[in-house]
Design a protein around this nucleic acid. Structure first.
Length: 234
DNA sequence: TACCAGGTCCTCG
DNA sequence: CGAGGACATGGT
């Protein structure tokens, strides 16, 4: 099965996922919703969420975002100047909160220093160059950088996570652990389209949560069973 | 109880 | 390079 075929089947099954969930003005909780355009505030929120969600369930990230919103602290200036312990308290629901507080603060300071806190300036940079730059920051690895580029910047970068790797390795019976390799697998076979990449990744997450779970996957009732080299054996 | 969740850094060979 | 440990919540 080709990646685009997988995409179509996933979309037919699950429909639009409306990623990435963000907070609308006047609200405190992020929601999944189709939005024409993201505000810079929302783009920053996505980048913060990308760091918070490292090895963390979204429900725990949501609690932290909500706290930051209520404390009126979800801004570049606020995070850049906040006491690290105070910040760690606000994001306490996310595992590794001390570490992440450090990462967030460093990231906000970098945005201030290098881009005057202006995300438009940041995303004007050529993607390749920007990706390298983000990767040089503490706390931003491949997945975090790509989720920022794709979901906050609208760049056509295929985002890979543990779910993506699991699905690729099962569906096509591969054994790829390397991030860039998995990314290349998709990017080389798909049109470089940010809307497609956006939806595709969200759909993969849904598949992984509902059927292709880590232990005890639900192969027998999975709608992809016949297309899946793992499913055929299970 | 143990395992999982939208990882990254550091160190060592 | 890649393996292995540190980081240290909340839900099931």
């Amino acid at each position: 099965m080709k990646p685009i075929t997988l995409y179509k089947k996933l979309f037919a099954k699950f429909g639009s996922q409306n990623w990435w969930p963000v907070t609308d003005s006047g609200q405190a909780k992020p929601t999944y919703k189709k939005r024409k355009k993201l505000s810079n505030q929302q783009r920053f929120e996505i980048m913060v969420g990308a760091i918070l969600t490292q090895n963390t369930s979204w429900s725990n990230v949501m609690k932290a975002i909500e706290k930051l919103n209520k404390a009126k602290s979800l801004s570049i200036e606020s995070i850049a100047s906040m006491n690290e312990k105070k910040l760690a308290e606000l994001i306490h629901s996310c595992i590794y909160f001390n570490q992440k507080a450090k990462y967030l603060k460093g990231f906000a300071k970098y945005l201030q220093k290098k881009y005057d806190g202006n995300l438009n300036k940041l995303f004007k940079k050529p993607v390749k160059e920007l990706r390298k730059e983000l990767l040089s920051l503490k706390g931003i690895g491949n997945e975090t950088a790509d989720s920022m580029l794709l979901y906050a910047g609208g760049k056509p970068v295929f985002m890979v996570d543990a779910y993506t790797k699991r699905i690729v390795n099962r569906l096509w019976k591969k054994e790829i652990n390397n991030y860039v390799e998995v990314q290349g697998f998709f990017e080389s076979q798909l049109k470089k389209d940010s809307a497609l990449f956006n939806e595709f990744h969200a759909l993969l997450v849904e598949l992984a949560k509902q059927y292709c779970t880590k232990s005890k996957p639900f192969c027998s009732k999975c709608f992809l069973k016949k297309d899946c080299l793992f499913g055929l054996e299970n």
